[in-house]
Nucleic acid binder design. Structure first.
Lengths: 330, 330
DNA sequence: TCGCCTCCGGGGAGCGTTTTCTCGCGGCCC
DNA sequence: GGGCCGCGAGAAAACGCTCCCCGGAGGCGA
């Protein structure tokens, strides 16, 4: 089951390797007649260029890595948005004629493997997803001199990113609750090592502070379970609260469950607003009000930024806008 | 920013390229003293072997492709289990020292690209996920002479697979509903081009037939929206039904929503059982009874099967068992 | 008609590895 | 003590492709 090589095709077509190569790569300086005979030979033999050999000389791989830096619990990769991001990235690369290799970096060991892989020249660029603020990976990768784009704000200086307006989104949510006449508005945060979580918390705090109200904060980690637990905590600490802003939808779903178990009506007793507007948000009871994260758009933007970077383009960060989707829970 | 090559390492260590290569590849026929001096040079220079060059001569890439054959709507890749599968596969390959390239085949065009990529020698094997029964891809890939494992049963003859006991799982669900005293048990199916969907329907039908009861079937496509729509249909067609078996949890969630809107109590009026036991199943109101699909285990098994295949192992299909997780909805 | 310029095709040198083959040296057995 | 065997290291040939460089042919202008 040996695949034919350039040389075999050349022999069959009765031309030189060079000509075949030119035809394959779509160069225009080749006579139509030669082009045709080469194409025929290619089809007859089912020739497909060997990737390794091509990479070796061109130093391009047409492959981009998506590196997901994530603790073993899988905070990020468990997120429903993960699929959406992967899909959007995949499609975008598809149209650009690039390939996608996905690497999860869960441990130091796998982080090293990622770096080795990058250093091994297997990819032309890296899209980093959802890292902790202090993650050493972005800086390490950027040091390799390879184009890197982060899917979040990051502490590494020279790494361009595409981020949500997290603080703005949180402000949207809180102002909405205030307009609904809510007085005691609590929040459930994400893991504060993540920029997104911190920014959403900041947006919540700043908005409340502007109106002279007090913050009521419980810590979560972006999982349903943590949302449920944080909600229990909040009810215990502050039984009079009348609204909750959860820093993502999964935690909001957990909170809804706790509220239901505690006999609180939503939204009559307690209003709930989430963040991300994942599909499940429309299917909770009651349906969840949420700040929409345009994840697919963000992914597309990130890919474009990265592709631009590879072609030597500019590196300006991009901030995505967001909007509030009001449903029954608030 | 040029990376050092084998040759400069050899020069630095004062040995031949061959020796460096041997050290890098962990061959034992090299004197400890040489080994040390090479290792030192490697570390000092931060040498990492060039992948393309290595692939070119070894004809191995240490890379496996996960090909997701999926219509553009993203039936599969939208599924929460998709993340779980990707995570499990990624981890398993990590420990095996392999890399993962993810390819979504949504259109004929991208299908061709996938085939080209495979033919280009970029990967050592392929793991096919969630294809339609009539998908031409498995057969096409198998024809390339490359190890292929399917994540579902497939129509291609020579492609080994790892599958769930879908019919058995459906039977579990239906028998459970019968034991609860339900008489009119409906089902919402997945898209019947998928083997899984057909098998789950068969399991439902056969179990009911054994007890002499009538089947009540509505078609869905594994999405929440289709579950909600199918449930509306069912209520209209057969207002007296007292139980529903949905062929996956997403559709069950959609059905719950419709039942809630229609004022039916779950489980008092209508019992609901889903399939897959995704995490969201624990967080619905009421919590959803579901047939657990051991997706992570299935993914692990599939990877093992594929790795075994690459090393020339046997190709026996694997069937995963499943179990019923009873919660509040039934 | 001749010469020069242009354009197109071929030859061949690399790209960075692995791997085979060869060679030298030392030890062991007779 | 000599010959043979085996082990470890180096030289060099691939692997399949791209791309530079050169040569030949054809066209056009003088």
């Amino acid at each position: 089951m040996k695949r034919p090589t350039l040389e075999v095709v050349a022999a069959r077509a009765g031309v030189s390797k060079s000509s075949v190569s030119r035809v394959i790569n779509g160069e225009t300086t080749v006579a139509p007649q030669i082009r045709d005979v080469v194409m025929r030979a290619v089809h007859e033999l089912g020739y497909v260029p060997n990737g390794a050999a091509r990479n070796l000389v061109t130093r391009r791989t047409d492959t981009l890595a998506v590196v997901v830096s994530d603790p073993p619990q899988g905070v990020v990769s468990d997120d429903p948005l993960f699929s959406a991001v992967v899909r959007a990235v995949s499609r975008e690369l598809e149209t650009a004629g690039k390939r996608l290799v996905l690497m999860l970096a869960e441990s130091d060991q796998s982080r090293t493997r990622v770096e080795q892989h990058i250093a091994g020249g297997h990819v032309d660029g890296v899209l980093l997803v959802a890292l902790h603020g202090a993650d050493p990976l972005p800086a390490a990768l950027a040091r390799q001199g390879l184009p890197v784009v982060s899917f979040n704000r990051t502490s590494a200086p020279n790494v361009p990113y595409v981020a949500l307006d997290n603080a703005g989104g949180a402000a949207l949510a809180v102002r909405h609750l205030l307009e609904r006449g809510r007085r005691r508005i609590a929040t459930i945060t994400g893991p504060l090592e993540l920029y997104e979580a911190r920014e959403r918390l900041d947006g919540y705090r700043d908005t409340l502070r502007d109106t002279g109200r007090r913050s009521i904060v419980a810590l979560g980690d972006f999982t349903r379970a943590s949302g449920a637990a944080a909600m229990r905590q909040l009810l215990e600490d502050d039984p009079d609260l009348d609204a909750v802003f959860a820093a993502n939808d999964l935690m909001a779903i957990g909170a809804l469950r706790t509220l239901h178990q505690a006999g609180r009506r939503v939204p009559e007793d307690v209003a709930v607003v989430g963040f991300d507007d994942i599909e499940a948000a429309s299917y909770t009871t009651p349906a969840l009000t949420s700040v929409r994260s345009p994840m697919a758009d963000q992914a597309t933007a990130a890919v474009h930024l990265l592709l631009g970077l590879i072609d030597g383009g500019p590196t300006s960060p991009v901030i995505m806008p967001n909007e509030l989707v009001v449903r029954e829970s608030s």
